[in-house]
Design a protein around this nucleic acid. Structure first.
Lengths: 231, 231
DNA sequence: GTTTTGTGCACTGTATGCAGAATGTCCGCA
DNA sequence: TGCGGACATTCTGCATACAGTGCACAAAAC
């Protein structure tokens, strides 16, 4: 590890990571942008993607766009049909149920691991997020609630300190992001989801891995039910 | 659905599927080829990939090669360093342990599902593979054993009838393929692995999901141990 | 009227060319 | 002799140009 000032950073100095200016390659930016466009519904499921048109819309040539589409295909957000290009993937109810089942298994694993090996500070962060979630629920702010909700699930997986697990979870969460949004329609469904989150917070605070896994499982099963009814 | 001979194929005629000539896009072929090159060790971990050189070696221009590298990066087989191109990913022991833990969770899920919902014919196929495995073990044919071994694990996941699960499993199995090969060094280790497979076959034949999941878990834990010692 | 065949268009797949970034090297200077 | 800086080389990243494929529409034949 080399340091900027020819020695290791002095104790007490600000961590250098805060200063690096993030330089993402163009195709990386396109990946991010397209992912958002898919999850936010700007690209409808089943829609064919015209490379020239979309490239112009993004102000980018076809090359980085095509590379980005390959990446998104790997994440299952678009499908590549030979000689016909990319199509925004549309999820059947079975697709959703299948992905949710895997997502559930991954988060249960994450929950167990998190209770075993997370630092107290790490757990405290998740609980702080949970506090925010509660506030947003009380205020009835749907969108902030939704985002914090996602953040909590991601944070728990992060606590598990398993990059492979984290990556797989990210992929599935991105797939479900758009769909999940439908899941919180009626107030009583929302209340149920919030109650499950309370249980999750309690279990995590106690580092009770089995209890946490159980709640997470229930949370996903009921989440799928909520989607099924609204789909 | 249009038919070739202006009507539906006559009963008794050969199924037309046997005649379609498979046309994979060039970049698809490159993906497959590169994946093999990585798992078979022709590209060493940590090695930088020179696009022009590798392109010439494969007889392909840089464009499809670059697209293929994006796909492989999504599968975690190579890493993309900005402005420095692709390097073959090298796995630390923790990386391996992390991936194995996820692989274990996925296969346990698959095992439970397979016992619940697989057809008798599907289970019979896996048991037939197991029979071949036993023969290869008795004969001491390492490479065929290894391939059938992989095929059995894949087949069980296929029985679970969950494409998302199957895809995730494929990715992780590809990552571990090269490493696993080390895991069967001494004869006693091999014998232990074979014994676990016997248990798996028995549990699957009985459709005992919990037992199957338990053996699969043990199989992976011990598999990781076998790797740890040899690594 | 129905089916079939030909032709044109639009779009993807691949190759190549060009600019910029990073690294290694060589020379000058202390 | 050691260090710093400018330069050259190499390779990636992106854009563009070209070729080939599939599809749609139209015209002709049965």
């Amino acid at each position: 590890m080399t340091s900027i000032a020819s020695t290791e950073p002095q104790a007490g100095a600000a961590p250098m990571e805060d200063f690096v200016i993030p330089r993402q390659s163009l195709h990386g930016q396109v990946v991010t942008r397209l992912r958002d466009m898919v999850t936010e519904g700007h690209l409808a499921p089943g829609q064919r993607i015209n490379e020239v048109a979309l490239g112009q819309a993004l102000g980018v040539s076809r090359t980085p766009l095509r590379e980005a589409l390959k990446t998104l295909a790997g994440e299952g957000l678009v499908e590549l049909v030979p000689t016909r290009g990319a199509v925004v993937r549309s999820f059947s109810l079975k697709d959703i149920a299948d992905s949710m089942e895997v997502l559930k298994a991954l988060e249960q694993l994450a929950g167990r691991r998190a209770c075993l090996m997370a630092s107290d500070a790490g757990i405290a962060e998740v609980l702080a997020l949970h506090e925010q979630l509660r506030e947003r629920y009380a205020a009835g702010d749907r969108l902030p609630y939704f985002k914090i909700n996602q953040a909590i699930h991601s944070a728990i997986v992060t606590l598990a300190d398993n990059p492979t697990l984290l990556r797989m979870h990210e992929i599935l969460q991105a797939q479900m992001k758009r769909i999940r949004f439908i899941g919180h329609e009626g107030m009583e469904k929302w209340a149920a989801a919030m109650a499950e989150h309370e249980e999750m917070a309690t279990a995590l605070a106690r580092r009770d891995g089995e209890a946490l896994a159980e709640v997470i499982g229930r949370h996903h099963d009921l989440g799928l039910e909520r989607i099924r009814e609204a789909y």
